[in-house]
Every structure is written in structure tokens, then in C-alpha cells.
Simulated assay, not measured.
Amino acid sequence: MSTTVTASTDVDVPVRVAYNQWTQFESFPEFLGGVDSVEQIGDTLTHWTVSIAGVKREFDAEIGDQVPDDHVAWRSIGEVVHHGRVRFTPLSPDSTRIDLEIEWEPEGFVEQAGAALQLDDMQVKKDLARFKDFIEDRERSSGAWRGEIHGGETTSGTDPDLRI
């Protein structure tokens, strides 16, 4: 049985800054609990190593749809079932709402118990709060990728002015 978690937060940075930081997948361990590492393999492929409740997993995830300053959608490849979408909505020139939805298949007793007790919901909300602190403290992104992806295919490239 799959588990779906949704969470939102408002960050006091422009949508471009929030989105640009989110596309820096290798920085995820700095604010996502349980994420040991994320390796960017290509424009559409990442490799994840996670440790949750003493269970270590590795999996690849493919970005299926990505539009700058709007959203990023992904899904795992292989045995681990995990997919999600993050949406960025400008609230003002200097603030952005981030809406996150993640769905996965908990495996084993520990993961199923965590889902039943809604520990996953709490973790995702904490992660978004840590992202908020991370990006507001910096006030700028650590890099950017401004390409678009539709159906798993890259349709445009990077903005060289945004490479930091």
C-alpha cells in the first residue's frame, strides 16, 4: 500500500532563488533528513543514498517534468517505488510558496509502522522547514539549472549567467 505525504511552506526569497536551489540536488543532504547523498548523473537522472530508521537504500530517480520557477516532478527507477512533485508559486516579488507531494511504497515492518504513525509526514514537514532556513539564511542559491524537461527529455539548456 502506497503512502502519500503533502507539505507546504512559504519562504522569504524570490521564486527564482527557491527554484534554483531546489535544482541543486547534491545539496539535499544539507536539509533533507535521511538523505546521505544525491549524485547528479545527467540532466534527468540522479542517484540517491538514504538511511531511514536504520534502513539504508540506494536508488536512481528520473526527472520526468521540470519547468523553471514552476515545478519539478520525479519518479524512482527500479525496485524502490518513489515519486513526487514540488511546485513553486510566487506570493510576492520576495516570497514563494513551496508545495511538495511525495508518494512511496513502504517496505518492511519499520517503514510500514513509520507510515502508519505518520512519522513520514512529520519528517517531510521538518525537511521543508530546514529548506526554508537553508535558503533564507543564504538569500541566494548555490547554483542553478534552468533547463526544461518534458516526458523525461531535456528541451532547453542552462542559463550560463546563473552558474555559481
Rank of each mutant, 00 (worst) to 15 (best):
I41L: 15
G42A: 15
S37Y: 11
D36H: 12
D43G: 14
A53R: 12
G54A: 03
E58I: 07
D36F: 10
G64T: 15
T44W: 02
L45S: 08
D60Y: 12
F28I: 11
G34N: 10
E58F: 14
S37K: 15
D60F: 10
F59K: 06
G64V: 15
K56Y: 09
G42I: 03
S51E: 12
Q24G: 05
G34Y: 12
E58S: 14
T46C: 12
D69G: 01
T49C: 09
Q24S: 09
V67Y: 01
E62M: 07
H71L: 04
V67M: 10
T23E: 01
V35Y: 01
G54C: 06
G54I: 02
T49A: 11
L45W: 07
E30T: 06
I63N: 00
V72P: 00
D60M: 06
Q40V: 15
T23V: 10
G42S: 15
S37E: 13
H71M: 07
A61M: 13
D69R: 06
F31A: 09
E39C: 08
I41G: 03
E58G: 14
V55Q: 10
V50E: 04
D70F: 05
G54N: 09
P68T: 05
V50R: 02
F25M: 11
G33E: 15
P68R: 05
Q24E: 13
D60Q: 11
G42C: 09
E30C: 05
G34Q: 09
D60H: 13
D69C: 07
P29F: 14
R75T: 03
A73S: 13
S51A: 13
S37F: 10
V50W: 04
R57K: 15
L32W: 03
I63T: 08
A53I: 10
T46A: 11
G42V: 04
V50A: 11
V38A: 04
V67W: 04
H71I: 05
I41A: 12
P68I: 07
R57L: 15
I52Y: 08
D69H: 08
Q24Y: 02
L32I: 13
F31L: 10
F59A: 05
K56E: 14
G54W: 01
Q66A: 11
E58K: 14
G64F: 08
L32N: 03
Q40C: 10
D36S: 10
E62P: 02
D65S: 14
D69L: 03
R75V: 02
